[in-house]
Design a protein around this nucleic acid. Sequence first.
DNA 1: CTGAAAGCGCTAACAA
DNA 2: TTGTTAGCGCTTTCAG
Lengths: 346, 346
Amino acid sequence: MTRRAPRLEDVAREAGVSRATVSRVVNGIRNVDPAIQDAVRDAIARTGYAPNGAARALVTRRARTLALVVSGAGDDSEDGQNLFASQALADPFFGRVVSGVVGFLRPRSMYPVLMFAETDAARRDVAEYLRQGRADGALIFSTHAEDPLPALLAAERLPCVLFARPGVPAPVTYVDLAHRDGARMAAEHLLARGCRRVATITGPLDLPAAQDRLAGFRETMERHGHPYVPVAEGGFTADSGAAALRRLLREHPSIDGVFAANDVMARGVCEALRELGRRVPEDVAVVGFDDSSAALAAEPPLTTVRQPMEEMAARMACLLQEEIEGTRTEPTAVIFDPELVVRASA
Amino acid sequence: MTRRAPRLEDVAREAGVSRATVSRVVNGIRNVDPAIQDAVRDAIARTGYAPNGAARALVTRRARTLALVVSGAGDDSEDGQNLFASQALADPFFGRVVSGVVGFLRPRSMYPVLMFAETDAARRDVAEYLRQGRADGALIFSTHAEDPLPALLAAERLPCVLFARPGVPAPVTYVDLAHRDGARMAAEHLLARGCRRVATITGPLDLPAAQDRLAGFRETMERHGHPYVPVAEGGFTADSGAAALRRLLREHPSIDGVFAANDVMARGVCEALRELGRRVPEDVAVVGFDDSSAALAAEPPLTTVRQPMEEMAARMACLLQEEIEGTRTEPTAVIFDPELVVRASA
DNA sequence: CTGAAAGCGCTAACAA
DNA sequence: TTGTTAGCGCTTTCAG
């Protein structure tokens, strides 16, 4: 006795009205007699009706679903496909992104579909998924600057919004941070607290964000009379941060301040300093970037440049919706302002 | 000139066959003349056809989508809704789960929809989403034993598979680990390496998994002549692990081995020990549980009981598909075997 | 303000 | 082996 799920028709009969009227009530369209609205709502409750998503999507040409894509730049060298997912999610960055996206979507009864696009095949799958209309658009978070996905989707006119300015220029909407301003804040804070021999550990320099943070930091240091700043390149991982710090100290043993281009590296820096017997912040002050969960997990908690990830991710979803609904047709860029969060490390 | 997306009809005309034939080719159904198959495939390529997901879902009554639900036990006390998502994703556990699920789904051109169910309202939304047929079933990962979601879905006969035996008994399929066996391995390893004053830090004891790990550990210790084992309860967080260790040491200063019921706590234990000037493993050996990313991040890397999360998650997806397709109608339990991974901490 | 009716694009009987 | 056709359940003109 597996009874068929109730349809609009059933509710209509129960309420003594037409399908159209029930549909109007379900979709909150005005111009329906309040009394009838109540009757319909009763009938819905009585029958346990739930509108069929596929039928609705078919006629409205909208899945009411967005894809959340974590995208890399790899080719089809297959192995490590599984690793990509776990590594991407392990980034403390990710939780805040999802939180922001979900915060925007949930009130709209929408939920993100999680996709990984680390190979050519996976990228084609993302495009295919969108073409099938299973998702209306994609929120793209690239781990590499050379990610070909944005261009791929743009070429097919599939709606998408990127996190961060694309490395390969493409007519695409994106959300980004004023990285230079953030780096400036870090520099000024270190100088204000009295640091005079300050170095910086950058992210991978093929990333625009890493370049901008470096440029902003240098700029500000120069303006304050420090034209030469020791620089070491890191890879945004804790180990790479620790290694970069050791390289820096070898050349410049008297460093008293470090700006690391993300919190994860800054945390590595703090650990390395502790091992070397240098106190943070007394001997060396450390400033991170992002204000990710790594900032609080570090010992001591990091002074850092906060990137409002939740709002940025939510805004991405909002921009994507506009693009899907055709409210906006031209690519746009929205740049958020960073904020200095002072904790114990500097 | 926004040309309408090509439909089955267009491909059929292009290939000079009927819609049905194109449909058969698209869906890989036999009994189609190879020559015609080629012609159809050509036509598909020429037109750039992609089957409409909604239309397909409408007629097959299947969305080809699974929900991946992270579920709590909270009520509607609203605040911290956003926190729930980021906290859940911050768990090193999560990356492996997603990796396993995606590994199973991707070859089937399926992708998980990410949902969070930490309040009554959110739980109702999950049920509604399934009732609408926007997803065919749910993979449920509960953070609390008292999670009401499984029972809610089971009552509506909505397909779902749980990670871990439900705290509230319900006729639901689930995947779990032989926790007792895992704890036994930990105990035997500590004893084998010569530890004689061994303590354990448990997870929240309302969780069946935490209870089982404790029981298995005690059982084995007893069998080997250690009827009394100091126990402290933790909360599966690093801080709670460190705190529990300090409590234990206060009562039992000469402890030479600790079994922590997860890696995150074990990591906290290692840090606390280091601060107290005790070496790991020379002074105190530490064994964790899970083999999550925390195990490698710890200093030293943790000896731990591996839980094959990826396989378990993949199996959940598989079991859910069976349930959706009606291949299996009775609730089932699949229990996985743990494995001891020996690293530096014990 | 409400109802009748025409599809949305596809699959799956059933016929040929 | 291929084609014809009847829906899947809903939204949305267009009449009334």
